[in-house]
Amino acid sequence: MHPAIQGIITIVLGVGGCVGYFYFSNLILDKVIFPASGSNIGRNINRANLIRPWLFLGPAFLALGLYLAYPVYETMRLSLIDRDAGNAFVGLANYKQMVGEPKFWEALRNNFLWLLIVPAAATAFGLLAAQLTDRISWGNLAKSLIFMPMAISFVGAGVIWKLVYETRPADAEQIGILNALYIYFGGTDPQTWLTIPFWNNFFLMIVLVWIQTGFAMVILSAAIRGIPEDTIEAAIIDGAGPFQIFFKIKVPQIMGTILVVWTTVTLVVLKVFDIVFAMTNGQWETQVLANYMFDKLFRANDWGIGSASAMVIMLLVTPILVWNVVNARRELR
């Protein structure tokens, strides 16, 4: 069967199934199990209303449980057993073996570099872009264009930046703009930017900063708009300069939003996979955890170490997870 037809059938079945489930389960609840008639009408309505939320929540939480909650447990279990030895429990042996691999430490080091630089750079550029475009007539156009990379896939961005970093032999004309500028400003030999150990990490990070700046800008720009005008007017009357107003009046007031942007970009960084996979595939010392894990899983076919490295990513995410939950609960009260 042609996949497109299969797709249409799935949409119809999926959508129809969902709607049917919600409709008929409600109908059965109200008409068959607890009919709103007869002698127990009041009791029945109350009981039906006790059960109804779970009908509404059922499919969603089944899917959440199966696709996100259960895997957390299962990955932890898999990281503690050895598949080749008949799924025997091996304790921390997978972790020990992983820690013994230099490639793991390289991935960990690079991930920390990414964590250090990308959220900071994306937030800083986002803040700069938000402030610069805030009061100019063509600000919305400028924002649109800076925001645009958000719509581009990491793989597409990888191709875009690979052309920027492209290297041609010294006697040929450079077609990558970075090398062309490098030669123009007096560089002698064209550089293969993505193969220079350590520094190539930064050339990969630029790609993610380029994508995430738009996101940071959109969120921060909304926050800047929300700053009460009178605080700024008061500062102007007191003789504050534009830079003082920005750093001492505006930034402190949107600190909460800056933190949100920072953590959101941090989450993206922790899971960064496509960019490294498409551009260097972890060669030349550019490995990161997510790609290391993919490598272990699908190339080395080692589920033990693969799961162990996934748990390392989970461990790094946990502080943000806890912080978010605490904040969400505070808001609900």
Partner: peptide, 13 residues
């Protein structure tokens, strides 16, 4: 909480 669980954990299971 599930909003931030990395996709990577879900792959093998």
């Amino acid at each position: 909480a599930l909003l931030v669980v990395p996709l990577q954990l879900a792959l093998i299971p």
